[in-house]
Each structure stands twice: as C-alpha cells, then as structure tokens.
Simulated scan of single mutants.
Amino acid sequence: MSDFSADFELDGEPEREFHAGVARRMAHKTVASGALIRDPGGRVLFVVPNYKPFLDIPGGIVETGEPPSAACAREVGEELGLDLAVGRLLVVDWTPGRGPWSDQVQFVFDGGVLDPSVAIHPAGDELTGFRWATLADAGPDLRPSVYRRLELALTAVSSGATLHAEFGHLLSPA
C-alpha cells in the first residue's frame, strides 16, 4: 500500500466535525477493483467464482484505507497467484445496490496482455477456475451490466481514454 504520510503532513490536522455524528450518518459505498487481462489474441481472462453464477474479471472489494489500484493487484494475486503490474484506469462505473449488495463504484484497470502459458493458480476458496474467452463468447455467462462495462473497458484500451459509466452505460465520450 502507498505511504501517504507526507501528504497527510502537507494537508495538516484532520478536519473536525462541525456537527458531531454527521460523518457517521453519511452514505457509504462499496468500492471494487478489477483487472482486464487479455491474451495476445484479444481474449479476456475471466474467473469462475464459486459464490455466484456468473463469470467475472479478476478483482474484488477495496479494503478500508487501500487505494483501488493496490486492491486490484492484491486481489489478482490472491485469486490467481499472479504478480500483476496494474496499468492505467480504463473505466469507472457506478452500479446500484441490489439484493444483499450496496451500490458500488467499480474501477477497471488495464491488466495488460498475458501469455496464456503463464501458470495461473485459482484460489480454491473463492474460485472454481478461470477461462480465456472473447467478450462475445463469454456474454451468456456474464451479467448484462458487466458485459457493458467490459465492452467499455475494451474500448478504453483501444481509444486511450478513461471512460465514466453508470450501470455499464457510457456517460463520457470515448
């Protein structure tokens, strides 16, 4: 994790609450980070979670005090045993809360191009495996909102832009 101690020193003393308890009453969102990892042929590396019926990209929930890019690298390491150099931010996507999940801000980072012969070791406590597939081929096994987000991430790779979305729908121009 990054050391922000010099930045804290420059910012000075933490703000004090003008009205006690206001900060505790404010909404809190879940933050998640994932890596768009591709092979030389353009296929995407998907994980097969054992806790939901859909494919996903490697990644997970950002811990308190953890930067999203660091969370992405940590999660890829925990899930797949890969020491990934996280690239640039491709997409920031907000998703509404549904079922047991609160609304989320989701970051998709460029995980780069990985040779498919590199050893991948799925974490048995949360994954049943992994799969290389084109987005179109994986489509039936993805939530539509995730499909839209990953379409935007692939657009961001080729355009060089970072895209802003809500529930997988583009808000900023490509």
Rank of each mutant, 00 (worst) to 15 (best):
Y147W: 09
A138H: 04
A136F: 06
D39R: 00
T155A: 10
L90Y: 02
L10G: 12
D56E: 14
L170H: 00
S159H: 02
D110T: 02
P96Y: 07
T64R: 10
E78Y: 07
A123I: 02
P67A: 03
R24K: 14
V62C: 10
V31I: 12
S145R: 15
I61F: 11
P144T: 05
P140K: 02
P67I: 12
D83C: 05
W101M: 09
S145Q: 11
V86G: 03
T30M: 11
S5M: 10
W132L: 03
E9K: 12
T128E: 06
R149N: 07
L127R: 01
E9C: 06
E166V: 15
F167K: 11
L150E: 08
V76P: 09
P14K: 13
L36H: 01
A35N: 06
G139D: 09
K29M: 12
V146W: 08
A35R: 00
G99D: 09
S117L: 12
E75P: 10
L80V: 03
V113E: 05
A123R: 08
T95K: 07
D103H: 13
G111V: 04
G160R: 01
F167Q: 14
A156V: 11
A35Q: 00
V62Q: 11
A138F: 01
P144G: 12
L114E: 04
A123T: 05
S5A: 07
W132D: 01
L142Q: 08
A161W: 08
P100I: 12
S158C: 01
F18P: 11
G34S: 14
A119P: 02
G87Q: 03
G124N: 08
L171S: 09
F46L: 07
V157G: 00
R98W: 09
A23F: 10
L142M: 06
G59A: 03
G77C: 07
R38Y: 02
N50Y: 04
D3T: 11
P122F: 01
P14R: 15
I120H: 02
I120C: 04
A23V: 15
V31D: 03
R74I: 09
G160Q: 09
P49M: 05
F167R: 12
M26K: 15
N50H: 03
V113H: 00
H19G: 13
W94H: 13
E13L: 13
E13H: 14
T162Q: 15
A153R: 04
S5N: 06
R43Q: 08
V86L: 01
P144I: 15
G139M: 14
P67F: 15
V44H: 00
V91I: 11
D110L: 04
S102M: 07
E79R: 06
D125S: 11
A70P: 01
D137W: 07
P40R: 02
N50E: 09
D125T: 15
G139Q: 15
G87A: 05
G112H: 02
R74H: 10
F4D: 15
E166W: 05
A32F: 01
Y51E: 14
L171N: 04
S117E: 10
A6K: 15
S2K: 12
V108I: 06
V92N: 05
Q104F: 06
I57V: 13
V91E: 01
V48S: 06
W94L: 09
D103E: 14
P68C: 01
P96R: 13
S145N: 14
T134N: 06
P173V: 01
S102K: 10
L55I: 10
V44S: 06
P40C: 08
R131F: 00
A27T: 10
L170N: 04
R131M: 02
